[in-house]
Design a protein around this nucleic acid. Structure first.
Lengths: 245, 245
DNA sequence: GGCTGCGGGATTGCATTCAATCATGCCTTA
DNA sequence: TAAGGCATGATTGAATGCAATCCCGCAGCC
């Protein structure tokens, strides 16, 4: 990794450096720390799209001043998670159905490429782990667990890729669409569609054979199918808490 | 446009708001202004990859304090143009040959998609303008002029697309690779390769016919050819001014 | 009744100031 | 002579305080 933004390493929620006691924190990373925390909150659904973010509230909660908070907001703005308006404030970004479709189309173009970077150096251990994740996902009933496993599964597919911008961009795409995946899953958890799991199983099989070409096709098809499913339910993108604070 | 970062509108160098007299500047955009200025300087070749950026120097030059400068550096870091190291400083990002190849592969996947968004609403005026740019480029001898026209040409192809993240991402890819396009053009300006111009002419023709499918293929082929050409000359990526300040 | 202007409170934007960290050169010492 | 440690200067990181801007409710007017 060299210069990209949301540090492609931390694929999981980064709950490690949460020294709430306020001591022993290194000097010089407050902005990044706050950004990471707020990012996790947004992805976890604690903040909802359209919700206002107040600098002072964040500063107080993290025991910092508003200066690093503003840095954090700039970071998240560049990732598309937060929308800043000069002299007015900042809100959690929301997506329209069209915009979400756009991101899934980007994923269709980029993730097969990222997979191509990953496959050659993908270890058997990771493939075994992917198999476990796919199986576990198939058994899981809880929506939040499914979302967590699905994210972990796909990002693990790319874990062997060492890229500087491609991985970042894909991660950003996942992050910006995370809320709407959750909304979709919550709304249609009854009518379970097994094709998702079939895709995952096929993908693991292709990866086990190190058949990158087939893996890329399965993956593109998987993303495309999800995009079409989302596109059939634009009502997910209508309701949101409050447009403005 | 909604929330993306490097404001896809300002495709050109933004030399408009440079009120050096220090008066009449609106309150609340110093960080963005400084970022825009520094971005232009990096893209223009005034700052070179590997060169150190000092906060105070920037602040003094723009008649501002270091706070908005730090904001600007965060913005440019997220665009990949600047690399920040905690407690150490900031440098203009540099690319290896591999990394540059990666970005061109991303362009191959994304720009045809962006073109697909643009073609349906592309006006005849823009097509005429593209024709002029392609012709002018073919005649131009100066490297800097060619670079400027080439950039303007390609970005104009996408000017009718209204996307929120796709356009931004493509612009970032252009920006991060800009320096190496210049280095390549400067090094091989003698042995002119007309295939670039043929591509441009074919692209304009396809756009005039509103043949999006053909335009996408020509574009992908054009980018791919450029990628391979760059890949054949890794020496471009070796020398740079100074690794550290 | 609905629109317009305005004033108080809240919130953001930036300059100043102080603290922490790092780099550099000199001095000491084996 | 060369290697290591320490002090000084330079640079970055963050807190505080003040100025500019905006949101919002209310009075006044058409």
């Amino acid at each position: 990794m060299a210069s990209g933004a949301p540090d492609p390493v931390s694929l999981e929620r980064a709950d490690d450096v949460t020294t709430e006691n306020g001591a022993l924190l290194p000097h010089g990373e407050a902005g990044v720390r706050i950004a990471a925390a707020l990012r996790d909150e947004i992805l976890g659904g604690d903040y909802l799209p359209g919700e206002r973010i107040r600098q002072q509230e964040l500063a107080g909660r993290h025991g910092a001043s508003r200066v690093p908070v503003r840095e954090a907001l700039r970071i998240l703005e560049s990732e598309g998670l937060v929308t800043l308006v000069t002299n007015a404030g900042s809100w959690v970004s929301r997506l329209s159905a069209q915009e979400c479709t756009e991101m899934y189309q980007m994923r269709e173009g980029l993730e097969p490429l990222l997979l191509r970077y990953s496959v050659p150096t993908l270890s058997d251990d990771v493939v075994d782990q992917l198999q476990q994740l796919a199986d576990e996902m198939q058994r899981s009933a809880d929506v939040e667990q499914f979302l967590r496993l699905d994210r972990k599964f796909h990002l693990a597919c790319y874990s062997a890729a060492s890229t500087i911008m491609l991985g970042d961009t894909v991660l950003r795409l996942w992050n910006r669409t995370q809320h709407y995946r959750r909304a979709y899953s919550l709304m249609f958890r009854a009518e379970r569609d097994d094709s998702v799991h079939y895709d995952h199983q096929l993908l693991v099989a292709a990866l086990r054979n190190r058949d990158g070409e087939d893996a890329e096709r399965v993956l593109a098809s998987h993303i495309r199918r999800t995009r079409l499913a989302l596109g059939r339910h634009p009502e997910i993108f209508d309701a949101s808490p409050r447009q403005e604070g």
